[in-house]
């Protein structure tokens, strides 16, 4: 699976912003993306929005995946999108997973999160979406 405009594999950052220690979901997704041939930079727990954006730029990723279960998504996700815009990196697509109420999900998608996966989403769906987003699809 080749990166947009490049010959190497897709690089994706998986991070858990904010204060929540439940990283099973992030790990399962990281592994599924790895098995789909991607290079997954796993940033781990308790990342500030600034750290997420800094890591994404240093690692030159094609895609950012955020996992959150703490309920702080309405504060943290828009902040990450804002920082990406400030760094002129808004073209890096961001997707998310975790416990996010439908109403919030609609608002976050409007704000620029490209895809949101709730509990029960198949890994195949996440992989396919990640591939499409990394290739520059909407």
């Amino acid at each position: 699976m080749v990166r947009r405009g490049r010959s190497g594999p897709i690089r994706v950052l998986i991070a858990k912003p904010g204060l929540d220690g439940h990283d099973r979901g992030a790990k399962v997704v990281a592994r599924a993306l790895r098995d789909a041939g991607m290079e997954v930079i796993y940033a781990g727990l308790r990342q500030t929005p600034e750290e997420v954006v800094r890591a994404a730029l240093e690692e030159d990723v094609d895609l950012i995946g955020l996992s959150i279960l703490s309920g702080a998504h309405m504060a943290l996700f828009p902040r990450i999108l804002e920082l990406l815009r400030a760094q002129k990196a808004a073209r890096i697509p961001v997707f998310a997973g975790g416990i996010i109420p439908d109403e919030d999900a609609r608002k976050l998608k409007k704000a620029g999160i490209k895809a949101i996966f709730g509990p029960g989403t198949s890994l195949q769906e996440i992989v396919t979406t990640a591939q499409r987003l990394a290739r520059g699809g909407a």
């Binding site: 790895r34 789909a36 796993y42 940033a43 890591a55 690692e59």
Partner: peptide, 30 residues
């Protein structure tokens, strides 16, 4: 992975730095 070419690069997990510290550049590589 010799099978899929994919990888999980997890060395950043331990990295702690002050916000806005440009004196570090950390790059993970497969």
């Amino acid at each position: 992975s010799p099978f899929t070419g994919g990888s999980v690069l997890g060395d950043r997990i331990r990295l702690e730095r002050k916000p806005d510290d440009d004196g570090i550049f950390f790059r993970s590589m497969a």
